[in-house]
Each structure stands twice: as C-alpha cells, then as structure tokens.
Amino acid sequence: MNWLSDYFDIRRTDAIWTVLLLAMTLGLPLFISNNYYLNVLVLVFLYAGMASAWNILGGMAGQFSLGHTAFFGTGAYTSTLLYNYLGVSPWLGLIAGGIVSMFFAVIIAYPAFRMRGVFFAMATLAFGEAIRILLIYSRKFVDMPYGLSINWEPGFSRMIFEERSSYAFLTGGFLLIVTLVAYGLSRSYIGTYLRAIRDSEEAAVAAGVPMRRYKMIALLISAFFTSAGGTILAQYVLYIEPTSVFSINYSIDLPLMSLIGGIGTVAGPILGAVIALPLRDVLLELFGGAAAGMHLVIYGVLLMVIVIILPDGLIGGVKSLLRRLQRGQTSGNRTTDKRGRK
C-alpha cells in the first residue's frame, strides 16, 4: 500500500467518489427493472466510459481529437467481422479491435502530432471521415453486405445477453475499468506530464518530458478504450453499418460530454455523460412532438450556452463557486484564481 501512495497522489475525498461510482455502476442495474431506464443506463455507462477514454487524450494531454469515431467504428467492425465470419468470441474481438485501432492511431499520430489545437482537431476529423468512406469503398473489392447483423444467441462467450441488466453490468464494468485507468494516469507522474504538455509544450520539453512519447501513450490508451466501446455497442444493438458506427456524432459527443462535465478531470466526462444523454432524451420527450429535430435545436442552443457560461465545465464551475464563497468568508484574501489562458 505504501508503494501505491508513493506513485499515486491519493486524496481523502477519492473514497467518496469511489463509493459513488461503485454504487452507480453496480447498484443501479440491480434496482432498475424498467427496460427504458435500463437502456438509458447502458448508454450512459458506455458513453461515460468512452468520453473518459477521449478525455485522456483530449482533456489531460490537451490534444482534442474530433476523429474518435474512427476508433469506435474500428472496434465495432473488427469484433463483428471476426465473430460473424470466423466465430471468434467478441471478448477476443474487443482486444483485436483495440489493437487494430491502436495501429490506426499510430498512423494518424505521425501527421497529427505535428499540429496543435484546432488544426489537430481538423486533421483527426478528416481521418474519421476518410476511414468511413474507405470502408464503404472497400465493398467494391470484398464481398460484404452494407450492414452487418449479429444473430441473437445469448451466451456469455458471445457477449450477448438475455437481460438488459446484464448489459448494464457489462457497460458499468467497462466504465469502471476506464475510470480506474484514467484515475491512475491522472494521479501518477504521467498525468502531470500530460498536463505539462497541454499547458506548454516548450516548457514541458525543456523540463525533460519526451513529448511525443507521452502524447502517443495517451492516444493509444484513448484509442483502445474507445474501440472497446465500439465492440460493446455492436454487441448491444446487434447491427452495424458504416454510417452508423463511423458517424461523426461520436467524434463530437465524446469531447462534448467531457467539456460539459469538466475537461481534463477524471469525474468530468462521467458527469457530462450522465447529464447530456438524459438531457437529450428529456428534450425529445418535451419537444419531439412539435417537429422532428426540434429537441436537437434546443439541445444545440443549450450546449452553446453551457460552453460559454461554464468553459471549465460543471466541475470547474462548482469549484470556482466554492472558491468564491470561501473568499467571501475570509475577505481580504486577494489571490487570483483566474486560469491562465493560452
């Protein structure tokens, strides 16, 4: 245990978060029996896990990718193709998809890591789109139907379950693992290195941080878990096609959730998913009747407002609120807390 506290910055409040997270991932599936709510739960867990994965690269290391759909779709396709054509268990397919995704990650890293900020975003966005188009194009040469269905044959080794609550446990477990990894990275020297790279590449390198190596570590981990999310979703909906699993929406939703919750923090992406997904459902419920798409108009407007008002997300907002309250009590303390903007 001593070893742990030597290498990881463990804080007392972490216990509260751990209990909350465990209660959510392992407890809620036990108590919810309504299929509609279970479906929401599965998706929230899945998106929370993938948003956390995105956040390792985009938030902690500050390389905001808009191309994660490439990894998501690769995960979904690899495991499904392996399962449908070769009968390989999706559990192995998940690993295989992760490896293929990491391979793609290495390819895109070469050009993309030479760019910063919004240019990195544009390059990764183009990458995500290119993969989808190439996949559709490849059907000219290989005999593959446009969409792939997975036969509904429940079985643990086939990662297909009869009960929806089993999927909630599966995605909950996925979320737990990603969160554990994100937490471990964040609280070890690697997290400090990634934040240093995000804040100032020059200073990080001058302080001896091998920048490319750590950006690459963040990218590979991020790609692997996003890909795993793709496999799990494929096993949940049992049908995939290029435009659905390589949809640009994944590339946008994952960073969006991180941003809403609090980018760069471990809890942020989870909080963001917990808020954003049900929000969309609620809006659909309220405005869906008016006209198709109406709820997304409001969703888009709300996003703008949230992003402008809370640039550091809910966690950042709450923190600065607490700080302001504290300062109100101990008036006269004039320490500035404004975050330095690059």
Binding site: F64, L66, V118, A121, I252, P255, L256, L259, I263, G293, M294, L296, V297, I298, Y299, G300, V301, L302, L303, M304, V307, I308, P311
Partner: peptide, 16 residues
C-alpha cells in the same frame, strides 16, 4: 475548445 464547441453547438441547432 470553447470556440470549437460553441460553433459546433450552433451547427447542431441550425442543422436541426
């Protein structure tokens, strides 16, 4: 990041 997502939010709203 704020700029990207503000404009992305607008894009979602206008598209719909």
């Amino acid at each position: 990041l704020t700029q990207v997502f503000t404009t992305l939010g607008l894009s979602i709203a206008l598209q719909n």
